[in-house]
């Protein structure tokens, strides 16, 4: 009796195994495609270039300043002398952090900085 039942169930078991393999393969393929798309988006959008969590930025990461604590200036209310003065104080505090900082106009890539300055030909 049991043998007959096993015999009759055998084709169904084989089909369900095949379905399971197809399902797993499909899910894995789909996830690989999704990961590839996401990775390409990450690279093409330029996020990778400024992603300071990358291992190559490990030594300089601590120099990145995070300032999420400063509250925003109130966007409603009257505009009087003290409000304007308060704004100026906040504005100056923020802009003073930027302007004295070394910008991209220094000569870090110049021949002199890289030790490639042309020496005049010997007379």
């Amino acid at each position: 009796m049991i043998d007959r039942l096993r015999e009759r169930a055998a084709p169904y078991i084989a089909t369900s195994r095949q379905r399971f393999i197809v399902l797993i393969t499909g899910v894995l393929s789909l996830s690989m495609v999704m990961v590839a798309i996401a990775f390409n988006l990450y690279r093409l959008s330029g996020v990778e270039q400024v992603d300071m969590s990358l291992p190559r930025y490990q030594n300089v990461r601590q120099q990145v300043v995070h300032d999420d604590q400063t509250p925003a200036f109130a966007s409603s209310g009257s505009v009087n002398d003290s409000v304007v003065k308060d704004f100026i104080a906040q504005y100056d505090a923020r802009t003073n952090k930027i302007t004295p900082v070394q910008d991209f106009s220094n000569n870090a890539l110049s021949d002199e900085s890289l030790g490639l300055a042309a020496t005049p030909p010997a007379q």
Binding site: V50, Y57, V60, V101
Partner: peptide, 9 residues
């Protein structure tokens, strides 16, 4: 690397 920090800040 220094430029990346500067850009970020």
């Amino acid at each position: 690397d220094a430029d990346a920090v500067l850009r970020s800040n």
